[in-house]
């Protein structure tokens, strides 16, 4: 889902940058007010962890593979979508500048997709569903929908940029990420949440903790 350079015209790139800077302002404020100094090293190490996770291939039934994005589960574990946003911003900046994965001019668009849409959707869907159903299925649905809708947004952006036709983009991106969303993001995030919930529940933010846990 990393859009490369040249796929979005400069004028539209600026729009995404403006949105990202706007959200970034709130995220930095949030970090100042809600994060004690202890959590800043945590965010950075999580960034390194998410980086490693992104390089892990997860098999998909048709012989291809995909990888996890990780911002929904980070937001859920830390209890705020801004955490996912910050971690993702850091990861995407390093990927763009040091690895050439995703472009520099489109960095704004990439952060908008994977940092903003995915984190906020993942977290708020989880939060809305948690009281209704058990926490683990809501992690699954939240992460899955986050990735699926992000891919749709990505297809829309490429359409607005005039790079890819709408229907073909929606079909390709949608189908591929529908499967990745279920397998790579949804199931894996649910397993991660379940395992951390069992082993170290103290690490999960109180807002996201599964209270019905059997001890």
């Amino acid at each position: 889902m990393h859009i490369p350079d040249g796929f979005i015209p400069i004028s539209q790139c600026i729009v995404y940058y403006v949105i990202v800077i706007f959200v970034g302002y709130f995220a930095v404020n949030w970090a100042k007010n809600n994060l004690d100094e202890k959590q800043i090293p945590l965010l950075s190490v999580l960034g390194a962890g998410v980086f490693a996770i992104m390089s892990m291939n997860i098999p998909i039934p048709w012989g291809t593979s995909g990888h996890m994005i990780g911002s929904p589960i980070v937001s859920i574990l830390l209890g705020s979508p801004f955490a996912g946003f910050l971690v993702m911003t850091v990861v995407l900046i390093i990927q763009a500048l040091a690895f050439g994965d995703g472009g520099v001019t489109v960095l704004g668009a990439n952060i908008f997709n994977m940092g903003i849409i995915a984190s906020f959707l993942g977290f708020y869907i989880f939060k809305a569903l948690k009281p209704l159903i058990h926490a683990i299925p809501s992690v699954f649905i939240g992460s899955f929908l986050a990735i699926f809708i992000t891919s749709i947004a990505c297809a829309l952006e490429l359409f607005i940029a005039g790079t890819f036709p709408l229907t073909a983009g929606l079909v390709f991106m949608g189908l591929y990420h529908f499967v990745i969303g279920i397998v790579g993001e949804g199931i894996i995030s649910a397993i991660v949440y379940m395992a951390i919930n069992n082993l170290r529940p103290d690490l999960i933010s109180k807002k996201s903790l599964d209270l019905k846990r059997e001890d």
Binding site: P41, I188, R200
Partner: peptide, 20 residues
Amino acid sequence: LGYTIMMIFLNSFEKGEKIY
């Protein structure tokens, strides 16, 4: 794979604390 990824998350949390 989920456990592997969980291990990385747990390591991150623990390292984050240590680094702090």
